[in-house]
Simulated scan of single mutants.
Amino acid sequence: MELSTLWFLLIAGLFVGYFVLEGFDFGVGMLVPVLGRDDRERRVVINTIGPLWDGNEVWLITAGGAMFAAFPEWYATLFSGFYLPLLLILLALILRGVAFDYRGKRPEAAWRRRWDAAIVFGSAVPAFIWGVAFANIVRGVPLDAGHNFTGGLFDLLSPYALLGGLTTTALFLTHGAIFLALKTAGDIRTRANRLAERFGLVAAVLAVLFLGLTLAHRSTPAALVLSALAVLCLAGALVANRLPSRTDAEGRREGWAFAGTALAIALAVASLFAGLYPNVLPSTVDAAVNSLTVENASSTPYTLKIMSWVAVVFAPIVVLYQGWTYWVFRKRIGTQHIPE
């Protein structure tokens, strides 16, 4: 396997990890005022992702850095053509991080409601825009012979791209609701289970429609298989979320449900990359000449070789550390753990 193809697969893996992990905390952020009926319940919802959300964002930083080093042409064209959407994502993520920290600085209810709204905004905007962005990456954008983006903002807002944004938002809401059911106790857990059922049905319909349109436009055998598996995993997650637990009389099989939504998101993102390859950013203008591919967008073989050795050494350390973090904060929490 050529190093350029290897790094395409590694970047795909980084985005898979980012959407699976950041997906549930985007969903939790959007659900703060929905599932939290008072301040203590909202604090429970926020505390489920408190030790995790910043670590999840490392996957995005690493993916961006890997794109910059391994595929500089892809990085340059993508970040210049998608400048405004990516800037909105960055601002939303900054606002969300500030909201997590500043929400508890003052006791007034109005102060905390404003920061709760900031958490919702900072979670919903990236959840939607990432779907729009990846829909455009797969569908293609207008590029000239110099691989420069020649379109405008409204070229990125096609019905297909907006459907991609709605799909990721619905998937992340379902993923987040199931995560809350897995991590909380009492009434919040029960309400989260019910919300997961409702959001899950919407997400399933949108996912089937979006993946179907994607395959109609850019299909490969691998993309077809991965898309079908993603839909099956999402359906399995919804079934598991309805089944009673064998060990907990008050709960359902949230662990299996969460694994199902995680696999569904991972397989769906993988199917997009499988349909994209060997392109990294197709052009809608003279696609055979103007498209960016893993060959014409990559760095030199020597650069990719050095990067590969760095990844071999440091990637396992990062994964093991994050896995340890999840293990440490694995237990359920409820309002009984939140002081007045």
Rank of each mutant, 00 (worst) to 15 (best):
L156M: 06
E108L: 07
L267C: 08
R106K: 13
G236R: 03
N279E: 15
N136W: 01
T261E: 14
R194L: 12
A240I: 01
L272D: 08
K183I: 00
A196S: 08
G97Y: 13
D25I: 01
P85W: 03
W7T: 00
L180G: 06
A228K: 00
R40G: 14
L180R: 03
T169C: 15
K305F: 10
A63V: 00
G64L: 07
A228V: 01
I188H: 08
A235Y: 13
V20K: 12
V98P: 12
Y83H: 02
L88C: 08
W74Y: 08
V280C: 07
V318N: 13
I129G: 13
I137E: 12
W7M: 08
V269Q: 12
V141D: 07
R242S: 11
A264F: 06
L10M: 14
T5Y: 11
P72M: 02
Y277S: 13
A287M: 06
T325L: 15
A145K: 13
I61P: 14
N290C: 02
R96I: 03
L182I: 03
W115M: 06
F121P: 13
G122C: 03
R43M: 15
A203S: 13
R218A: 09
W130E: 08
S298T: 01
G65V: 01
L226S: 04
T303D: 15
I49G: 10
F210V: 01
W74N: 04
L31Q: 14
G255A: 10
H337V: 08
A228H: 05
L35R: 04
G251W: 02
K305E: 11
A274R: 02
E2I: 05
I338P: 14
P142F: 02
T247G: 08
N279W: 08
L93W: 04
V285P: 07
V289W: 15
G122H: 05
